[in-house]
Computed example of a mutant assay.
Amino acid sequence: MTTNEYTIALAGNPNTGKSTLFNLLTGLRQHTGNWPGKTVVHAEGFFTYKDKQYKIIDLPGTYSLYSNSADEEVARDFIIFEKPDVTIVVLDATALERNLNLALQVLEMTNRVIVCVNLMDEAKKKGIRIDIAKLAKKLGVPVVPISARNEEGIDELLDTIDLMIRGAIQTKPIVIPYSRSIEEKIAKLLPLVKEIVGDKYPARWIALRLLDGDTSLLDALKQENHHSFKEVARYASNRSAKSV
């Protein structure tokens, strides 16, 4: 990959207009196939903006990244292991509360996030008003309102991507607080996780997934040559069992 080529991941719930945005940005410069070892469709496209070449991956539409399905595992693994330069989370402006669940999960995984609130035209028709500035302040990342099918807000989105790539935007994603007992377990797991992965992966998020018994993530991490996670996962399992 050249220094002027960057990768964007496009995440979102089904029916948020994510693929409409993907098609708008890439036009005919796209192709599809299957993810390696999966029956899940892999869509990849390209576009150029301000002398920078972008490869954009349209991740499978999911409601979460908890590895309950092949689609969720594909989306999760790409964000964690491929480390896209920017992850755009597409939300439906008419169902914002439901869609924010996925956005919050992504924000636990990476800080290079742009939240894209799509279907603003539909929200307006329904009398729904969204305070974009307040939402951005709460989430700690840029929030861009668009209507992909009407090609509205796309220039602002592209400018925001460019600013993030150039390092002109500093994000501070919201940290979701959990119950006292869970936070205590996270605190005890963090040193073990950090000892193995350092700064390569989001340690807090990994600790949470291990506490939740996410064996799929454990397998993926072991494939990334982190076999020591077997012992950490056993410790996490013991901690969780003692809380029952």
Rank of each mutant, 00 (worst) to 15 (best):
M1T: 09
Y6R: 07
Y6E: 07
L10T: 00
S19F: 11
Q30K: 12
K38M: 10
A43E: 07
A43P: 09
G45Q: 09
K52H: 14
K55C: 11
I57G: 04
D58H: 09
S69Q: 07
A70E: 13
D71A: 11
K83W: 05
P84W: 04
D92V: 04
A95W: 05
L96C: 08
L96S: 03
L100C: 12
L100A: 09
L104T: 00
L107R: 01
L107N: 00
E108R: 03
M109N: 00
T110C: 07
V115Q: 05
K126E: 11
G127Q: 11
V141P: 06
V143C: 09
P145C: 15
D159L: 13
D162F: 12
L163Y: 15
M164H: 08
G167H: 09
I169D: 10
P173W: 01
I174Y: 14
I174E: 15
I176N: 13
I176C: 09
E184A: 11
K194V: 06
K200Y: 11
Y201H: 05
A203Q: 06
R204P: 04
R204T: 04
W205P: 02
W205T: 00
I206F: 01
L208K: 02
D212R: 07
T215M: 11
S228M: 08
V232A: 03
S237G: 15
